[in-house]
Design a protein around this nucleic acid. Structure first.
Lengths: 335, 335
DNA sequence: CTGTTAGCGCGTTCAT
DNA sequence: ATGAACGCGCTAACAG
């Protein structure tokens, strides 16, 4: 049987209140009694029951993390960032994969409520109207990470996807490229899909390059869709000299297809990705990309959540810096 | 204020016991009363307080997952497998990253104890003697995943690394390769380092190929170590025609180095990796590898743990099937 | 079938 | 400074 506070009290010949005080470092305990209690705790290998404590103080020191899929390359670093700061503050995280399914998201929320987490970190693409309703009535602090909240009702940490895409394309233009295709994200994705396409358009416009609808290929951020897009790009009579992909995985898919077809990267075609996942770095040739500070986004999200939990103020819309990482998949246009 | 069971009882004009019964689907509740209670629950948006319940029934329906680093490519799928079956059985997972540091492992164990998880899934390389002592006295079921327990004292799910490595090398030999280098794991890693090297040796021996110490290069499973190893391999006067790497990441590092030096893969040199992570699949050329069923290992680990939690029997040493996935990085030796 | 009540282990008054 | 007692919300045992 595992020891309780009572056992410790008995063994130390004190009341449970006193034991509680020494556990919680309450000042008003005389030195010798404190020592006696500590000894008893040691001897019994007593560990406070966090469940009982939580019930009493109405705080569990755990936070719920809701994520589409931990096995998707984008998310693990975010979670790591979260857990690292959680650990620093003696919080524990409970993890839920939702596959972006509303039903699973709701389930996760319910469990989080029932288990009385102190806060929620919600990582996704968007919050649907439907889910937002649920989110609003959970009654505990919530921070959105890498998730667009179009009405700006929740605290969230994010990068500016439009600007990032704009920078990526501008980089390509500076390299001399004029005919730049885009393997875009999903049309209905307000977080990554739409703004990245907008950024692409703006960069073109700024350089007086006419937007050509035929150069846009929609994908779902995955390898295959990048690969398929490239198949079509290759068929173009007037081939682009560069491609901007809305995800690294699509960029790699596109590169694989191109190389398989005998094209050289970056000599024949430059490719720029988005996200900054490991795959882009280790691919050969390494993929130039927009690196999202995923680890720090996780950290910042958790830090913000902690502030909210403690009743402190926190900036609502936190925009993190991205980084354009030049690698081997992009080069000056050959002339 | 959030509603409690008392509020529901009052609203439905019944005792709390009755409310508890309907929540827990206890059969002996008359239909009309059950309906009345359900309505009250609905109206008050009542959610049972899992903390209070846990305190009472002494089970939290949560399990602790201890992992080296969720942002390392090998682990996310395992965790996903775990969470998927956990969800099916209404369990929740709390996640801890340890970076293989004993101190963090111990911390994680303590929190798991204090938070009264029902079981532990420990994912790592090895359990040190030191940690094993701790593990033994946690007092709740534990299953080791992808972790070698040399004394076989814990339940664990794993692949047979020696056989897998043996198969990989045998495959290379069948392709006609005789001079096969190995980029090995760490010498002191009993889980992946040692057995994979042993398997390599056995395959060689079986085919009467003399083991050549100079063909062994030790790495740490990471990209850079594979890359560096390849640098040295290339310097060899009598170059190998094939390389077996103890991890996909090292295989990719080696391939990158080779290609950068102007070698063609697989024409000039065949490469086989180990693990079956996404990187190996998406690399160009795609990397032949030993695929570990990571998702299923997670599932099986959780399923086993559930059995232990429920007091059922479960096989102690669960060896999963790996798969040799032939891809583009390996080919018959050119003659 | 249903209401009442005693804890689960702890933190916190309230006396002392 | 310290002990006794109450209650956090719930389940289970008991009585009816």
């Amino acid at each position: 049987m595992v020891a309780t506070i009572k056992d410790v009290a008995k063994k130390a010949n004190v009341g449970v209140g006193t034991v509680s005080r020494v556990i919680n470092n309450h000042p008003s305990v005389s030195e010798n009694i404190r020592k006696r209690v500590l000894e008893a705790i040691e001897e019994l290998d007593y560990k406070p029951n966090a469940i009982a404590r939580s019930l009493k103080i109405n705080s569990t020191k755990t936070i719920g993390v809701i994520i589409p899929d931990i096995s998707s390359a984008f998310y693990p670093e975010i979670v790591r960032g979260i857990e690292d700061v959680a650990k620093d503050y003696n919080y524990t995280i409970i993890l839920f994969n939702t596959d972006l399914k509303l039903l699973k998201e709701k389930d996760a929320l319910n469990i989080i409520k029932e288990k009385k987490a102190d806060g929620i970190l919600f990582i996704s693409n968007t919050v649907s109207k439907n889910l937002k309703k649920e989110l609003k009535k959970v009654g505990i602090p919530i921070v959105l990470v890498s998730t667009k909240d179009e009405e700006g009702e929740f605290h969230n940490v994010i990068i500016d996807n439009e600007i990032a895409a704009y920078e990526a394309v501008r980089y390509l233009i500076k390299l001399g490229h004029k005919r730049i295709a885009m393997i875009a994200g999903m049309k209905n994705d307000p977080n990554a899909g739409i703004p990245r396409l907008e950024g692409y358009k703006r960069a073109l416009k700024e350089s007086n390059i006419e937007f050509d609808e035929n150069l846009i290929f929609y994908g779902n951020y995955k390898f295959k869709s990048g690969y398929e897009a490239m198949k079509n790009i290759i068929k173009l009579k007037d081939k682009p000299t560069a491609i901007f992909a809305a995800s690294d995985t699509m960029a790699v898919g596109a590169a694989s297809c191109a190389m398989q077809m005998g094209f050289k990267i970056p000599e024949d075609i430059s490719i720029v990705g988005f996200d900054g996942i490991e795959l882009a770095e280790y691919f050969y040739p390494s993929i130039t990309t927009i690196k999202q500070p995923r680890y720090d986004m996780g950290r910042k999200g958790m830090e913000t959540l902690l502030k909210l939990i403690n009743g402190e103020e926190a900036p609502k819309n936190i925009v993190m810096d991205f980084e354009l990482v030049e690698r081997k998949s992009s080069t000056k246009i050959k002339k």
